[in-house]
Amino acid sequence: MATFEELYHQHVQAVFRFALSVAGRREVAEDLTSEAFLALHRNMESIDQTQLPGWLLTVVRNRARDWWRRQAVEQRYADRVGERRPNVAEPAIERWILEAGDLKPIHRSCVMLRYVYGMTRAEIARKTGLSETQVKGHLQYALTLLRKAHGVRDT
């Protein structure tokens, strides 16, 4: 039977990754991760260790729900739901982003975040866990493909 510290080192990366994906902010992800391991410590005697890390992820998921509830996110989201979706035809570039075979999923997401959602490279890096250099590399690759696909002049 593994000790608490061994279990921590074995599962902390997976738990943190999941926490970051459900909360979107690093400091909150750390809070959720530590809550999950505290719960594990309280239940060390009764828990079946073969159920890890699923058990820990469930704790994170439940705590994340509470966290979202506390953010009163419904209030802010209400403003957006109220907006009517504009009746704008899908431009060709949108279909290209979704379907270009040479684009990997992460390229696609970086392009969306940068050129549609208006994020800086640093913001994308924070959201994705990538370095800014990696983000820049992904964007350059995607833009190269875009230039070829749309016949835009090379620099």
Partner: peptide, 30 residues
């Protein structure tokens, strides 16, 4: 690289202006 595509980019922004924020989408996915 994006020269000449400004109108299309603007159309995409307009189309997705009311989408749920990224953090909510990711949390919903999980």
């Amino acid at each position: 690289a994006l020269a000449g595509l400004e109108d299309q980019l603007e159309a995409m922004r307009e189309r997705h202006r009311g989408d749920p924020p990224l953090d909510l989408l990711r949390a919903a996915r999980a």
